[in-house]
């Protein structure tokens, strides 16, 4: 009787089959396999446990694991679909699929709405919008007086809040985003078109000794 040896490929916990992920997303099987390479690189940067932690996500975006950024935090929280504090491989692929050039504009509009709906309440309030503008100013070199910030928020609400109830709901957001397509510019990553040809960056951690 012969023995058959089946080569077992070791995958990180939370790994999902590439065929399933390709079926559910805009990626092909080969593209999902390429994304696994990228996922492996990021998830072994600091914690080496096969999950992407917040610090690892921040490091690849800013080359600094300690830099906190309001909007990077929002993106991380949405990628972390299960809400368990880490991004698993399946969550990584499903979330990146939203940014694929072939994904419909409607899906991108919905995802962008979820980024800006800070309280997950199903609408964007004036105070939330102001909070986001202030967060943006905080991370940039742009300084605007409080009056100017109020004016910007007021004018945006005038354009987007069609029923004047002081809330931007998903339908109003959809209308507004369609009239202002530049808002969705960062919702499409051209890199994802040629992902099987890509050589992913080698992220290198610089550990600094803090006294």
């Amino acid at each position: 009787m012969g023995c058959a040896f089946v080569k077992q490929v070791k995958h990180a916990p939370g790994y999902e089959e590439s065929t399933l992920l390709a079926y559910e997303t805009a990626f092909t099987i080969k593209e999902v396999e390429s994304l696994y390479e990228l996922f492996e690189k990021i998830s072994h940067l600091i914690f080496n446990d096969g999950f992407i932690h917040r610090e690892e996500f921040q490091f690849v975006l800013f080359k600094d694991s300690n830099k906190r950024n309001f909007f990077a935090d929002r993106i991380f929280d949405l990628f972390d679909i299960k809400g368990n504090g880490v991004i698993e491989f399946g969550e990584f692929v499903r979330s990146l699929s939203i940014f694929h050039p072939y994904t419909s504009q409607d899906e991108k509009i919905t995802f962008a709405f979820r980024i800006y709906d800070l309280k997950n309440a199903g609408f964007i309030e004036r105070e939330e919008l102001k909070e986001m503008v202030l967060a943006l100013l905080n991370e940039s070199d742009l300084f605007l007086t409080d009056d100017v910030v109020e004016t910007i928020v007021d004018q945006t609400f005038k354009q987007a809040d069609l029923n004047c109830d002081e809330k931007i709901d998903p339908m109003e957001w959809k209308e507004f985003a369609k009239k202002n397509p530049s808002l969705l510019k960062n919702m499409t990553l051209p890199y994802l078109m040629d992902i099987t040809m890509a050589e992913f960056p080698n992220f290198v951690m610089n550990f600094e000794v803090v006294d």
Binding site: F62, F71, L136, I152, N186, Y191, F200
Partner: peptide
């Protein structure tokens, strides 16, 4: 465009934290 005429979402969308291209840039 004067800042006071800017659309708040357009301003927000310039955040580096919303630019996932860095995941792929060498």
């Amino acid at each position: 465009e004067r800042p006071s005429q800017m659309n708040a979402f357009e301003l927000i969308s310039t955040s580096q934290g919303l630019n996932l291209g860095s995941l792929f840039e060498k």
